[in-house]
Design a binder for these strands. Structure first.
Length: 421
RNA sequence: GCCCCGGUCGUAUAGUCCGGACGAGUAUACCGGCCUGUCGAGCCGGAGACCCGGGUUCAAAUCCCGGCCGGGGCGCCA
């Protein structure tokens, strides 16, 4: 007897041409569809079931892959038994599984689970999963350990974005806007840590590149010399991710029409002062000491693209636009941003590990050191020089996959208006 | 916080500017029929929508007001 295989999945398309019914079945966590060919002459029972099947239904099919593959759409499969494990009972399906009728982003997000039956949407999240897997592999290979810091925090803003406030018994609590303070505290006990974590930002964003709940790949390393050490580690990770995706996700990338080429190390380091010069040549004048806005980053991105460069660091920012925990160097800071094609993907730098300097920094930023006692305490017990970065997962995906809206890169986005599903 | 824009069959859209044969068109999905290799198949038939409330008018999908829901940009932010 022949060995039978069993497929489980949903029917995306049904083409009934009389004596043959073609069923397009969503493959198990893959993207290449399976085409079940049900011929009346070969198996009348199967044909009869297939003819009555509703698009969208979940089925289990026993059979074999066809010896001669004719279909241009997917892997051809010859069923000998079809069982409907869950019938599509809604008459009106909000999206067209054949992919012929477009849908708006909003519709896609309302019915995310349904759109995940489409190859393009599956590809995006298969790639997301692979990015995180590659990142973990890189960190483990380089001697890091994975940590988890609290997302419910007692301290409010660390400067920068506003935080979500909530009730915590008789106290106020805040959702972590980043693991920054905690991963630094860990530097007084561990040498190399990383965390894959949500960030919560309470800004009323309404753009294609902001989320109120986003995910970051964060790391922190002790005993460093300066921020250059961190940049080297970050560019190495980026190259590892891009090369890994190109190798392992070629099918998914093809569906998204993306060709990945690993950037060359080292990525260019462009000093803040040089950025101002480049902007000036483009007729954009900003005052020294001002932070770079979206417009400025976009223009810089265009200039870099002209030179064939996608990834680049912006270094030597003025200290006044960077947060208190960044190490100061006169009026500059030991910080950097990693940008890709005009979008900031990561920021990092060397942190201030000397408690007196750190307290001074806080005071200069108008923060009260008393509010950060729990954090400062960790700096009293031989805190080594350290640094790290936070890399935005969705932003990285946007740039790698040419996604127009950051919401495409996350299953159930949280934005100014969207809290369900 | 500020400023624009939109809401029409399940989905995606045409129509709105300039009110009248819009009795609301098209595509796809859906229902029924024909077809033994479809590849966004094809052909025949069917069903399916003007966000809500008020106003103007002989006449409102179309104009006005309010509400609800959504989209985008700026600021801020990664």
């Amino acid at each position: 007897m022949f060995d039978l295989e069993t497929l489980c999945g949903w029917i995306n398309e049904k083409k009934d041409i009389g004596g043959i019914v073609f069923l397009t079945v969503v493959p198990d966590n893959g993207i290449k569809p399976i085409v079940a060919v049900c011929k009346k002459g070969r198996n009348p029972e199967v044909w009869k079931v297939a003819k009555k099947l509703k698009i969208g239904s979940a089925v289990r099919i026993d059979g074999q892959y066809a010896e001669t593959q004719i279909s241009k759409k997917g892997l051809e499969f010859i069923p000998c038994k079809i069982v409907v494990v869950s019938e599509m009972s809604e008459e009106k399906i909000p999206i067209d599984f054949s992919g012929k009728t477009p849908f708006l982003l909003d519709t896609k997000l309302d019915y995310r689970y349904l759109t995940l039956r489409l190859p393009r949407e599956r590809a995006i999240f298969i790639i997301r999963s692979e990015i995180l897997k590659l990142a973990r592999e890189w960190f483990y290979k380089n001697g890091f350990i994975e940590v988890h810091t609290p997302k419910l925090c007692g301290a409010g803003a660390e400067g920068g974005a506003t935080v979500f406030e909530l009730n915590y018994f008789e106290k106020k609590a805040y959702l972590a806007q980043s693991p920054q303070l905690y991963k630094q505290m860990l530097m007084s006990g561990l040498e190399k840590v990383f965390e894959i974590t949500p960030y919560f930002r309470a800004e009323k964003f309404s753009t294609t590149r902001h989320l109120n709940e986003s995910w970051g790949i964060d790391m922190e390393v002790g005993f460093i010399d300066n921020e250059e050490d961190i940049m080297r580690l970050l560019e190495d990770l980026i190259v590892h991710l891009v090369e890994g995706l190109a190798e392992r996700c070629s099918k998914e990338l093809k569906i998204l029409n993306v060709k990945l080429k690993a950037p060359e190390k080292p990525f260019p380091r462009i000093k803040y002062d040089e950025v101002l010069e480049i902007l000036r040549r483009r007729g954009v004048e900003i005052e020294w000491g001002e932070d770079l806005g979206d417009r400025e980053e976009k223009i810089l991105g265009e200039e870099m693209t002209k030179s064939g460069i996608d990834f680049y660091f912006i270094t030597k920012y003025p200290w006044k636009v960077k947060p208190f925990y960044i190490m100061r160097e006169n009026y500059l800071s030991r910080s950097f941003d990693l940008d890709c094609k005009g979008l900031e993907l990561a920021s990092g730098g060397q942190r201030e590990h000397r408690i007196n300097e750190l307290v001074n920094n806080m005071l200069e930023k108008g923060l009260n050191p008393k509010d950060f006692e729990f954090y400062l305490e960790a700096f009293r017990y031989a805190m080594p020089p350290h640094g790290g970065y936070g890399l935005g997962v969705e932003r990285l995906m946007m740039k790698l996959l040419n996604l127009e809206n950051i919401r495409e890169a996350i299953l159930f986005p949280r934005d100014r208006w969207r809290l369900v599903p």
